[in-house]
Simulated scan of single mutants.
Amino acid sequence: MAVPLLLFANVAFIVYWLLSGIKKQFLLSFFCILLAIGLSIFPYKFNSKTVVSGGSFAVMTYNVRLFNKYKWIASEEVPAKISSFIKKENPDIIAFQEFKHDKEVDLNYPYVYEKLNGGKRANGLAILSKYRIVNQGSLDFENSNNNAIFIDIIRNNDTIRIYNVHLESFGIRPDSVDLNIDERKSKRLIYRLKKSFTKQQVQVEKFMEHRNNCPYKIIISGDFNNTAFSWAYLKLKNDLNDTYVEAGKGFGKTYSFNKYPLRIDFILADKKFLVNEHKNYQIELSDHEPVLARLSY
Rank of each mutant, 00 (worst) to 15 (best):
Y16L: 12
I14E: 10
I133M: 07
K237E: 08
L7Y: 03
V51L: 11
S129K: 14
F224A: 09
P91F: 01
S20H: 14
K23T: 10
V15D: 08
N108E: 03
K69I: 10
Q201H: 05
F257I: 15
V112M: 00
N117I: 15
E209P: 09
K88M: 06
G222F: 12
A74L: 03
A80K: 03
Q203N: 11
E289K: 04
S221V: 06
L189M: 12
S20F: 15
E77K: 10
A58G: 13
E114S: 12
G119A: 12
D223Y: 07
N145R: 14
P261D: 12
A232C: 07
D242I: 02
G252K: 04
K49T: 05
L66R: 13
G119P: 14
R161G: 10
V134M: 12
I172Y: 03
A293N: 09
K235A: 15
S176N: 15
E168M: 08
I37Q: 07
N164L: 00
R211C: 00
N180V: 13
V165R: 00
I149Y: 01
N280S: 10
V51W: 08
L292K: 00
G124M: 10
S230C: 15
T227Y: 05
N226P: 15
K120A: 13
A293C: 13
L39T: 05
I162W: 09
I93M: 14
I190N: 07
N164K: 00
P43T: 08
M208C: 01
